[in-house]
Design a protein around this nucleic acid. Sequence first.
DNA 1: TCTGGGGTCCTAGGACCC
DNA 2: TCTGGGGTCCTAGGACCC
Length: 385
Amino acid sequence: MPYFIHADIDAFYASVEQLDNPEYRGKPVIVGGIPGDRRTVVSTASYEARRYGVHSAMPIARAYELCPHGIFLRGRMKRYQEKSREVMGIFMEFTPDLRQISIDEAFLDITGTERIFGPPSELADKLKTTVRERTGLTVSTGLASNKYVAKIASGMSKPDGCFIVENGGEESFMRSLSVDKIWGAGNKAQAKFKKYGYKTCDDIYKIPLQRLCSVFGKAFGDFLYRAVRGEAASSFDYIRGARSISAEHTFGFDMYDQFAVETAIMKICNTLMYRLLDSRLESRTVSLKIRYEDFSTETARETSEHPVCTMNDLFDRLCALFHRKYKRGRGIRLIGAGLMNLENAECSSGELFEFEDERKIRLEKCIHEINKKFPRAAIKKARLI
DNA sequence: TCTGGGGTCCTAGGACCC
DNA sequence: TCTGGGGTCCTAGGACCC
């Protein structure tokens, strides 16, 4: 019988802070920004903070209103990544078949591990105990015969619990849930459920596939039909490399100065180019994103015959897109850029580039290596200093 | 209260070719 | 002279997730 565990670290960033700073334990910790930071949101709130109504994606200003005595922190990603690797390492001791889906959660295929670890529920217990003893963190787990149901089950077990859906019980489990438990149906879908009067998954269960598809579109209709029957969503079943790399920047105040926006674009180019070099991938498609003062967002992209080769090349392509798209006189809240449709770089080094480009590519690679070895050297374009 | 940053996938329409 | 239909590639926008 197939068996999957979905394991999710409880209030991850906030828990790491409470672990490293004992004086924070038992107190409302809010990671994401400190009061006064403009245009920032909560990444993680500890369970103590959630009692005041603070939750992820909430503006820091609002969180401060709800919980003025909370401990506000900007966050230390490096430390969280380190802790995440520790936990994932422990997961790996229970099965080599691990699918990490974000910094703090993973699916474990534990099919056929009974002889080593006992029944699935015992394995889940051992997993939770081991993680707690070795890292000080608690995890919530869900057990089911497929990943989708396991994910929903772990949500029901938070914090620090274990929720088991017995084999054969997937469908009745799903049908008993309210529609807001459907993973993959966000605000827009929830509003539509409300409009049509769908309160529980059982309401959706009773609707024929054809009707679901005509109301919600083919892909999402198919998805809903299967989800409320507790059938596996296939989207995690195959592993694929990264498809895009992107970076963006929100200005503290609306920006009207085009030169300053271009400088921000250059900074983003710097980030993207080094990440591209590290990944050994290449891209022919460059995209630009502009968010205006009223939060309306426009994107532009362009695919060229040749992959992006240097930072200047990327910068030129993005500036061209920017000037084509930008509505003059409007305030810019956010500027972003990305490299899409990534492909392996091996095939196209050398003769594709002009001699002059070849020199620049080598120079950028050297600078990147130096910056990695000596972070304090920080070699960069004069405009970015 | 005024809304981050990094991703994935889907849709619909247009261009172009056969 | 008018016109079908399938396939592929590309673009813009949007929903959703953590």
